[in-house]
Simulated assay, not measured.
Amino acid sequence: MANLYNSEGYFSPTEYEAMTRIEKEEKAARKAANFRPIVYICSPYAGNIEQNTENAKKYSRFAVDNHCLPITPHIYFTQFMNDEDERAEAVLMNNILLSHCCELWVFGDVISKGMSEEIKQAKRKYMKIRYFTEEMEEKMRISEIIAGLMSLRKDTESHIGPDDDFNDVFYHDIKVLDAVIAELRKRNAASPVRKNITTVVPLALCAEMQTSARKRTSCTARNATVFLRRRKTNEIYALHR
């Protein structure tokens, strides 16, 4: 514990202030490490019940691995409730649990009727909703992708100097980013309103940015490529509108 007097008994306010700051930072770090946001797992159940239950367990484990506390009602309510006869009561309890969560995590490309109701409920509560594939890779809204790329473009422009040897490379990156943004805006405008879609970004554009990144010290182009490229495949992130 911080003390106004040092080990030799002399008054030392500077040392006390420094130690107090360190203790506060350590306390905040411990508190952050112990905090686990509660997330509601929204995934299919009807149909292939056995496989969907295993998937729900997998998604719950994914949430735990990401330092979250998962709430997955269709794993445990189905252990002692009849989904056909007690459907209304189960939905009510699901909504009660959902109201205690800070985020809704939606998994898979198929949105069942029950999942749709949970998403509507989350939107009514202005809850953060995140979408994931069955492989637990997060989808992103096209508007979010565009915002991220616009931020990268602004960062690239900030590196342009009057006598910078890398200016040509910066201008090239801006041109590539503009092409990607234009493509996304085009696909976003063409997509049906209020309908979930998936689309891709041309691999060639990301390849250009990745090649450009190797030519200079700035990591803007490399960041843009990582922002779009999947970790495990050569495909581009599915963009979820």
Rank of each mutant, 00 (worst) to 15 (best):
Val180Gly: 02
Met150Pro: 02
Met140Arg: 14
Phe166Ile: 05
Leu149Ala: 06
Arg153Gly: 02
Asn167Lys: 15
Phe166Leu: 05
Ile146His: 08
Ala179Leu: 08
Glu144Ser: 15
Ile142Pro: 05
Leu177Pro: 00
Asp164Pro: 05
Asp178Glu: 04
Arg141Phe: 12
Val176Phe: 00
Asn167Leu: 11
Met150Lys: 15
Ser151Lys: 15
Met150Cys: 14
Met140Glu: 13
Ala147Tyr: 04
Leu177Ile: 09
Ala147Met: 14
Ser143Val: 15
Asp168Tyr: 10
Lys154Gln: 13
Ala147Trp: 06
Ala179His: 06
Asp168Leu: 07
Ser158Val: 06
Thr156Asn: 11
Ile145Tyr: 04
Ala147His: 09
Ser151Leu: 14
Asp165Asn: 08
Ser143Arg: 12
Arg141Ala: 07
Met150Glu: 14
Pro162Met: 11
Pro162Gly: 02
Ala147Lys: 15
Asp168Arg: 04
Pro162Leu: 13
Gly148Glu: 01
Asp178Pro: 01
Asp168Pro: 06
Leu149Arg: 05
Val169Lys: 00
Asp173Arg: 04
Asp155Met: 10
His159Trp: 06
Leu152Ser: 03
Ser143Asp: 09
Leu177His: 03
Asp165Ile: 05
Ile174Gly: 01
Gly148Leu: 12
Gly161Asp: 07
Ile160Met: 05
Thr156Gln: 12
Asp168Gly: 07
Met140Cys: 14
Val176Trp: 00
Asp164Met: 08
Ala147Pro: 09
Ile174Asp: 02
Arg153Leu: 06
His159Gly: 05
Asp178Ser: 04
Thr156Gly: 13
Val169Asn: 02
Ile160Asn: 06
Ala179Glu: 05
Ile160Pro: 02
Val180Ser: 04
Asp168Glu: 13
Val180Glu: 01
Arg153Val: 00
Asp168Ile: 11
Asp164Thr: 04
Ser158Gln: 08
Leu177Asn: 01
Asp164Ser: 10
Asp178Asn: 13
Glu157Met: 15
Val176Tyr: 01
Glu157Lys: 09
Asp164His: 07
Ile145His: 01
Asp164Val: 05
Lys175His: 07
Met140Ile: 07
Ala147Thr: 12
Asp178Lys: 06
Met140His: 11
Glu144Asp: 15
Ile174Leu: 00
Ile174Gln: 00
Lys154Cys: 13
Lys175Val: 14
Val176Leu: 02
Met150Val: 14
Asp165Cys: 09
Gly161Gln: 09
Asp178Ile: 14
Asp173Thr: 04
Asn167Phe: 07
Asn167Met: 08
Leu149Ile: 02
Ile142Gly: 10
Val180Pro: 00
Ile174Thr: 03
